[in-house]
Design a protein around this nucleic acid. Structure first.
Lengths: 209, 209
DNA sequence: ACTTGTTTCCAACATTTGATGGAGAACCAT
DNA sequence: ATGGTTCTCCATCAAATGTTGGAAACAAGT
């Protein structure tokens, strides 16, 4: 039987789905403590008790948002993996950067939510996510940094993290960085992709000396 | 005449200074909305009205924290610049990575605060910071990506941002990433430095083809 | 029409939170 | 000691916030 979250994912027009998506946007902008249940309800155009009826406590809703996001990421990574299967590493990186950047720039709340869960202590801490660990392991294997999903050396994970973070930072920081660079959205996205490739590809493709 | 903040910086044992430092730690952990004035007062061991007496509104205190941090960063960057003056780029990067990593790992709230100001919409938005722009310009010149502080092309700024973000991410994410890598603090710090050098140095030192 | 179950809203609640007024300490120069 | 200034706390306020009970609206089967 599907969980409540899965149902909401499959029926984005249902009340549950609409609340989830509004919550996701808001939590992505302001963080957990920066959003009130009333803000979410107002964004959907409903009373707050309707929100509580569907999702229960604020904390529960927030966790549903994170799980929802993680599922999206998982699918996106799988899509990329299919796209680049068998290609050499520099091409894999290039495609991964392009596709992930496009995705994150069209879902600006996604990268913010990730940053929040990495960096912010929630006053009421929920248990750690193992999902990120899985993503990392998958990427490490895909990049040839580890042979086996179950045995990824710390060094390999660290390198994957460096790549991963570089990408989400530019997406997350758009509102802050773009004015500093005086670029419009399209130009910013292009510069970001180019910069990421400039930074990341040489590290992984250089001939060892 | 020195501003209130400068006085507090110069007298860290004064009440003003103690409040500032407690606030800085807490805002760094939980973000603006995640911290209450009562939490800060409690951390210092004083009544909240004493806090308001010294710093006024929460928002003002928060901005003082950010300004304080920015001053630290500025000094740190200048220190690095002196340290590597005249050295070739790969050495500059190496030293910068080492020194910045050490600094950020011993001031864990610093990188978090930076991430907050880059990524989080505060519900009550204060005006944009120009200080970050200055830091970027300085680094860009120091790295030879621009000839003149006042004319840094977007591409150069983007590259500096990529470097900058990579470093603060690992510091900020320690609580989240370190358990994933199963490393103790020292080992984590070492792996981070190594990874940063692995990622960043080749990009800037390769011979153009 | 009547029952049964689901969904939505109104009203209210107890806490939490940002913020202040005013009374007393503490300090300090005279 | 006295007067003035600076600092600290207690008590309190109004607004915001998380959360719930219960009544109405709605839907669907019989």
């Amino acid at each position: 039987m599907p969980s409540p979250l899965e149902k909401a994912r499959q029926a984005p027009d249902s009340m549950k789905g609409r609340i989830l998506s509004a919550a996701r946007k808001l939590f992505g902008e302001y963080g957990f403590h920066g959003v009130t249940t009333r803000m979410i309800a107002k964004a959907v155009g409903i009373d707050i008790s309707t929100l509580y009826y569907h999702w229960g406590e604020k904390q529960d809703l927030y966790e549903a948002v994170l799980t929802d996001l993680n599922e999206d990421i998982r699918l996106k990574l799988r899509e990329i993996e299919k796209l680049v299967h068998g290609k050499p590493l520099d091409v894999r990186l290039e495609v991964a950067i392009d596709v992930m950047s496009d995705y994150l720039f069209h879902n600006p709340e996604a990268s913010n939510l990730m940053l929040f869960s990495y960096f912010v202590k929630t006053r009421t801490r929920s248990d750690l996510d193992t999902r990120m660990t899985e993503h990392l392991a998958n990427i490490a294997v895909a990049m040839g940094l580890a042979l086996d999903k179950t045995h990824v050396p710390p060094q390999a994970n660290a390198r994957v993290l460096a790549v991963w973070n570089s990408i989400i930072n530019f997406a997350s920081g758009e509102n802050y960085f773009r004015p500093m660079l005086s670029l419009d959205r399209d130009a910013y996205l292009e510069v970001v992709k180019e910069t990421l490739k400039f930074i990341l590809i040489p590290a992984f493709t250089r001939k060892d000396s």
